[in-house]
Amino acid sequence: MDSILEFIVGRYNYWLYILLMMIGLYAMISKNNLTKKIVGMNIFQTAIILFYISIGFKKGGTIPILEHTSHAVEVSHFVNPLPHVLMLTAIVVSVSTFGVALALAIMIYREHGTLEEDEILKCLEQ
């Protein structure tokens, strides 16, 4: 019983990232409004960024910044900074995707006068 509880509580970041991914996917699939879908897409992307940051986290670790020291430092005292550096790029990518998607949404609105998917599909059938 304890081990199951440990399994759930000890990895709460991973559970959260899965939950956020599912919220994002749900919004992308079931929402009718295109702006909502775009928000869902961005939530999906931030979930993956959260996953990466959780990889680098260590219990009892601190910010990976070194003061000017001459003595050797213990690696386990610092969280792993490599995933952070990767995620800086991923954040920029996710914002650019967000921007491109919103620009496309504005183009669609100018063309069809609406952002509801069912109305656009009806408009395209004619």
């Binding site: 897409m41 496309l104 183009m107 063309e111 395209l124």
Partner: peptide, 17 residues
């Protein structure tokens, strides 16, 4: 054609996934 932005936005969703 006028469907192009809509088709492209659909591609954005799937491509991002």
């Amino acid at each position: 054609k006028r469907q192009a932005p809509f088709a492209s936005l659909n591609y954005v969703f799937l491509g991002t996934i």
